[in-house]
Design a binder for these strands. Sequence first.
DNA 1: GCCAACGTTGGC
DNA 2: GCCAACGTTGGC
Length: 144
Amino acid sequence: MAVRHWLAKSEPFKYPWSRLVDEGRTAWDGVRNFEARNNLRAMAKGDLLLFYHSNEGKEVVGVARVVKTAYQDPTTEEDWSVVDVAPHVALPKPVSLASIKAEPKLAQMDLLRRSRLSVVPVRPEEFECILHMGACKLPRVTKR
DNA sequence: GCCAACGTTGGC
DNA sequence: GCCAACGTTGGC
């Protein structure tokens, strides 16, 4: 099965990329939007996730990897889900929202068209494009 | 089932 | 700090 690609937003002061790197793994909790939840539930182990800093930074800073598929969000009794993610690789050059907007190939991204959704799917060619803009080489995934 | 009010996200 | 977009809630 092909790896799928996603983009998830985090406000840096709540949970920055650097903290994910420090901790090595985290539950992606706090999603309280039905569509975002459904996207979480659609993720498979090994899927890759662009890590976007919203509000402050406004840039894609790294790629995370789904290490555990959706399960009950432990921070609530209600019906919400989390997935576990681990850092995969940092972007040598973070890709800013401004540069994404300036790139015609990325005009269809859900990041732009559905700006308030915190977890959105990313097309393979968009994923590749952002990695390229970020001067990022993906480490080979040995096990999917 | 409609829709106005409200709350939240997130860019600027 | 403001405000546009838009999802959610609740009255009817």
